Amino acid sequence: MRVVNIHEAKTHLSRLVEQAAEGESFVIAKAGKPMVRVVPLENAAEKAPPSRFGFLRGQINIPDDFDTMGQDEIETMFNGGK
């Protein structure tokens, strides 16, 4: 693993962060003593968010007439009982 002194890390931070994001971990050292390790996060961009569509599949049933359920009652309420 590459060791970078703190001055070089400050000078080239953008480049080093890009390299770390691409998978190249490195260590930042102060006076030759390793201080921190910079590692890429899990590829959040590549991970798709969990799919919410269909998450209850198989657990509930939606009737075939779902779109028209209670239509007569609703029309009666909106038309003032006529």
Rank of each mutant, 00 (worst) to 15 (best):
M1G: 07
N43A: 13
A31P: 08
D72F: 01
K47Q: 14
D72R: 12
A29V: 02
M1F: 09
N61K: 11
L16C: 08
D65L: 00
A44M: 08
Q19D: 14
R2A: 08
G70E: 08
N61E: 13
G54M: 05
I6W: 10
N5A: 09
T68W: 10
S25D: 00
D67H: 12
L13K: 03
A9I: 03
N79R: 15
P49V: 01
R2Q: 13
N79W: 09
Q19E: 15
R57K: 15
P49Q: 03
F26H: 02
I6H: 05
R57E: 14
K82V: 13
I62E: 11
K10P: 06
L16M: 06
L56G: 11
H7W: 11
A20N: 10
E22C: 01
V4W: 03
M1Q: 07
V38M: 12
V4L: 08
V4S: 05
V36E: 04
V38G: 08
L13S: 09
E8T: 02
G23S: 09
F66N: 12
P34K: 04
E42Q: 13
G70H: 04
N79Y: 00
L16A: 06
G54R: 03
Q59M: 12
P49G: 01
Q19C: 04
F66M: 00
Q59N: 01
F66C: 11
I6T: 05
T76H: 10
A9S: 06
R52V: 13
Q71F: 10
E18I: 03
Q59I: 02
P63Q: 05
P40E: 07
A45H: 07
A29T: 03
A48N: 10
R57M: 04
M69W: 00
E24F: 02
V36L: 15
Q59E: 14
V3P: 05
G23N: 08
L56T: 12
M77G: 02
G70N: 01
L13N: 13
I60S: 07
A29P: 06
F53Q: 11
V27F: 01
P34M: 11
F26P: 07
D64F: 08
I6F: 13
L56V: 11
K33F: 02
S14K: 10
A20S: 12
I6A: 14
D72Y: 12
M1R: 00
P50K: 11
V27R: 04
E8R: 05
N43K: 13
P49D: 09
G70R: 08
P50M: 09
L41Y: 06
A48K: 14
D65N: 15
P50V: 05
I60N: 02
K47H: 10
D65Q: 14
P63H: 06
E73C: 09
N5G: 00
I60R: 12
R2S: 01
F66S: 03
N5Q: 08
E73P: 07
G54D: 09
T11C: 01
E24S: 05
N43V: 03
